[in-house]
Amino acid sequence: MRVLTEAQIERFFNILNQASELIQKAKDQSYLDSLIETLSVVQDQDATNLELSDADTQKLTHICSGFNRSDYDSETLRKGIQMAILKATRVDNIQANYQITPDTIANVIGYIISGIFRGTDTISLLDPAMGTGNLLTALYNQLHNTLNLTPSISGIENDDAMFELAADSVEIQHIHAELFHEDTIQNVLAPVVDVAVSDLPIGYYPIDENAKGFATHSENGHSYVHHLLIEFAMDHVKKGGFGLFLVPSQLFQTDEAKQLLKWMQGKVYLQGLLNLPGELFQNTAAQKAILILQNAGHDAKQVDPVMLGEFPSFKDQKAFAQFLTEIDAWEAQDLK
């Protein structure tokens, strides 16, 4: 079955790639823009509105006619789109914020969420910086399979191209999602959910005026966008609900962390900080961790001990499985 699935992923990617390369050459534009147009053609099976020559329109129609939605499950489609976006980042030399959260990390985040919410009937998620929607849809598919329920998902993204890719991705996967094409820091009217989750962009937010309404804003100069997004996200989580964020491992070791810690006091509990394997990053400064926060209320309390540690190498399957067992025990004995 796995061989068949890998073959299907490759087959779907080849359709996307051939079509995108044709459009890219014909219109002399980026691979990313061509991929966005390809996803629309694949879904609508209509290439007539792209203003291509008759010959190219015919070729494109033939390529995309090889796609039959019923041949694929959602996870296969997600992975095919992921492969195409990864190619776009290489071909177009796209900025770091377009980088996709690796599936290994998404799987770990989904594993933690599954453990916390095992036995629940419903679960709702919000990603305040969803990018291309890969993490959000990966979690949707994983939670749908492990918890045997249909998650309710919402996402926010300001970048035009990334939002279009996210919207196309959820549509082609037949996932119902509430997506907002807005700047999160301008206080989007997003839903209140059980879990906020995000691979947060790292750096400074450029519009100081927009950040003033946040307790985590910097008193001097630009504010860290990842601090603002954590605050926004947890403000949209239910009492006792959780936030899981990919953050710099050194999150609490900067001068700006004072405002973040001040905001957290009495409002959210720091329940865990799990460093990802150092081998995934170019250097120590770039290392990231999974931050686990819980809103106060509904019998939530500060766990003792806080889950701290570093994942072993994902290549060391025995050590990795043992670490997951430790997380299971912590969730069952301490967190709950």
Rank of each mutant, 00 (worst) to 15 (best):
L143R: 09
L143Q: 10
H144G: 15
H144C: 12
N145P: 00
N145I: 07
N145K: 15
N145L: 12
T146L: 05
T146S: 14
T146D: 14
L147H: 04
L147Y: 02
L147W: 02
N148W: 05
N148K: 14
N148M: 12
L149T: 07
T150D: 07
T150G: 02
T150L: 13
P151W: 00
P151F: 02
S152H: 07
I153M: 06
I153H: 08
I153N: 07
G155V: 03
I156W: 12
E157K: 04
N158S: 14
N158V: 13
N158K: 15
N158M: 13
D159T: 11
D159P: 04
D159F: 11
D160F: 15
D160I: 13
A161W: 06
M162I: 04
F163P: 01
F163D: 01
E164T: 03
L165I: 15
A166L: 05
A166M: 06
A166T: 09
D168F: 13
V170A: 11
V170M: 12
E171F: 10
E171H: 11
I172A: 00
I172Q: 02
Q173K: 10
Q173A: 03
I175N: 02
H176D: 13
H176A: 13
H176L: 10
H176I: 12
A177I: 01
A177S: 13
A177D: 06
A177K: 01
E178M: 10
L179F: 11
L179I: 11
L179A: 01
L179R: 11
F180L: 01
F180Q: 01
F180G: 10
H181M: 02
H181L: 08
H181D: 00
D183F: 00
T184A: 15
T184Q: 04
I185P: 03
I185F: 03
Q186Y: 00
N187M: 12
N187Q: 14
V188Q: 06
V188F: 07
V188R: 02
V188K: 03
L189D: 15
A190D: 04
A190V: 08
A190L: 03
A190R: 08
P191Q: 09
V193G: 02
D194P: 04
D194H: 14
V195H: 06
A196D: 08
A196R: 05
V197N: 07
V197L: 08
S198A: 15
D199A: 12
D199T: 03
D199V: 04
L200I: 10
L200R: 09
P201C: 06
I202F: 03
I202R: 00
G203S: 10
G203F: 07
G203A: 09
G203D: 10
Y205R: 03
P206S: 05
I207Q: 13
I207P: 00
I207R: 14
I207Y: 15
I207N: 14
I207K: 14
D208M: 10
D208Q: 12
E209R: 14
E209S: 15
E209A: 15
N210H: 15
N210R: 08
N210C: 06
N210L: 06
K212S: 04
K212E: 13
K212Q: 14
G213F: 03
F214R: 01
A215C: 05
A215V: 07
T216D: 08
T216H: 07
H217A: 05
S218G: 13
S218F: 04
S218W: 06
E219T: 08
E219W: 02
E219M: 08
E219F: 03
S223M: 08
S223T: 10
H226V: 04
H226L: 05
H226A: 05
H226Q: 14
H227T: 00
H227E: 04
L228W: 01
